[in-house]
Structure formats: C-alpha cells, structure tokens
Simulated scan of single mutants.
Amino acid sequence: MTSRAADAVTMPERGICAHRGASGTHPENTVPALEEAVRLGAQMVEIDLALTRDGEIVLMHDATVHRTTNGKGRVIEFDLAALKQLDAGAWKHPRFAGTRVPTLAEALAVLPRNVWINLDVKADARFGDRPADVVRRVAELVVATGRQHQTFLAARAEVAAIARATFPGIRICSMDRTKDPAEYVRDAVARRVDFIQLRDCAQDARLPAWIAALKTAGVRINYYYTDEPGEAARLLQAGVDFVLVNQVESVRAQVLPR
C-alpha cells in the first residue's frame, strides 16, 4: 500500500540518471556515489543489486568482487559480514579508502523520495541463480520503506514475471534487448512495461518513430548511456526521458543547469 506521503511526491518527468551513482568521480554503487548524485541534482539514480550467501541485498554490478573491492570471489559466496570487511573505495581513489559495500537498505536511506531509483537486478547463474529470493527481498525492502512510488526493477522478462507475481504493483523496466532495437521496442509496448532502456541507437534514423510509439504506449524511455553533453541534450530533446551518465556533474551542468 502506498502511503499518503508517497502519493504527494511529484516525480521528475525527465533528466539525468546517475549510473551506479556518480560513478565517474566516486566509487560505483557506494553511499558516497549516491550522496554525490543527490548533491548534484540527478533526477534518477541507477544501482545494481546482488544477493549474498545469507540472503541480503547489496549493491554490486559484477558477479565477483575483485574489480571494485580489495577482495576476491563471487558475491554469492560472501555473507554480509564478510562482504562488509572489504574496502570498496580505495580502487577509485585513496580518499575513498574504507568505503564499504552498502546494502539496499543503506542505499535507500540516503536517497530522497523525489528521485527515481532504477534497480538493476542481478539474478542469473553468475549471481547464484536465485531470482525469486532476490526479487522477494527487494520487494520487501521497497514496500517496508514506502518507496513504491519511485522505484522500478530493470530486469529481463523471467525475473519481471516473478517480481509482478510477488508484488503486483511493482514497476518494470524491460531489459530484454534484441539485436534490432525495433523488436525490443515492440516487446516493451506489448508487455506494457513502465520503462525501457534503449542503447546504441542514438544515431538510428528510426529512433523518432520508436520514441513516438513508446510515448503513445505510456512507456518511459531511459537511454544507456553517454557522457557527452551534446548527445545527452539531443536525446532529451528527441523525447528520451532519462539519460544514464557516469559524469553527472559535467553533463548535468551543461544539459540541465540549475
């Protein structure tokens, strides 16, 4: 059930999405990256979610921890206590040394209620192949914190089906991309998803027609991704709703000045 407070929140219609937080300047998928994205005024924040061995949801893009922490091994092989011992910031810059891998609950605690939260769910075999467990836990946290109005799951059809069976009102961003984006667009419209995340088609002559079809169907349009302010501006002017970027400060300053 959505609270009255959530009902009263006005959500952004368009803007910049901070990809893994302000990942261009801060360690991705960490609290400092999220706080920086909020400080810079991002209208949407994208984070990646993975399951630990003991059933907790943490922010991690890769199936293994070695790229973004000082540890080694698969995320699913760690329990939360062990994962919390890792340094998730020093790889980016010494000033972030000691930054920890956050849980979804910790991430939600620093995100305001008037930005979109793009939850990229990692649930395939590399991450333990436990999609029902991931979706159930994510849905529980979203509902418990009253974030239904601003969250959506970026997931493939099979995970989306589990999500909607678990929490019928949850918003879905289709991640069922195809070699030809036209098929991806048609599928998103047919399935009546809430969002789509286009990529690698900014120069495609068919993009205006796809945008028109998605708008008619009420599907919000994300675009992954660009750090070029000019391209971000063109995409927004063409009708894309949110453009994912790593360099939040530089892109937002030129495309959507305060």
Results as ranks from 00 to 15, higher is better:
residue 47 I to T: 13
residue 237 Q to Y: 06
residue 19 H to C: 03
residue 161 A to H: 07
residue 156 R to P: 00
residue 95 R to S: 14
residue 244 L to H: 15
residue 16 I to S: 10
residue 183 E to T: 14
residue 129 D to T: 10
residue 111 L to R: 08
residue 32 P to S: 08
residue 2 T to W: 08
residue 241 D to W: 12
residue 235 L to K: 05
residue 136 R to I: 04
residue 252 R to E: 08
residue 54 D to G: 09
residue 37 A to F: 06
residue 192 R to W: 07
residue 87 D to W: 05
residue 147 R to S: 11
residue 136 R to Q: 14
residue 54 D to S: 11
residue 10 T to K: 15
residue 8 A to W: 06
residue 121 V to E: 02
residue 99 T to D: 00
residue 104 L to D: 04
residue 199 R to Q: 14
residue 36 E to V: 11
residue 111 L to G: 11
residue 133 D to V: 10
residue 131 P to Y: 03
residue 172 I to T: 07
residue 251 V to T: 11
residue 257 P to H: 02
residue 29 N to H: 03
residue 90 A to R: 15
residue 251 V to D: 13
residue 182 A to S: 14
residue 113 R to T: 13
residue 218 G to E: 01
residue 156 R to K: 15
residue 229 P to F: 02
residue 87 D to R: 09
residue 239 G to F: 04
residue 29 N to M: 06
residue 55 G to W: 02
residue 188 A to F: 00
residue 236 L to H: 04
residue 152 F to Q: 09
residue 49 L to K: 08
residue 193 V to C: 00
residue 164 R to D: 06
residue 148 Q to N: 13
residue 87 D to Q: 11
residue 135 V to T: 00
residue 227 D to E: 13
residue 143 V to I: 14
residue 239 G to V: 01
residue 250 S to P: 12
residue 210 W to K: 05
residue 197 Q to R: 06
residue 67 R to D: 07
residue 37 A to D: 04
residue 136 R to H: 14
residue 149 H to F: 07
residue 13 E to C: 13
residue 4 R to S: 14
residue 182 A to I: 07
residue 41 G to C: 10
residue 79 D to P: 05
residue 155 A to G: 07
residue 253 A to Y: 09
residue 187 D to Q: 15
residue 194 D to W: 03
residue 258 R to K: 15
residue 231 E to T: 15
residue 219 V to L: 06
residue 146 G to P: 03
residue 128 G to K: 04
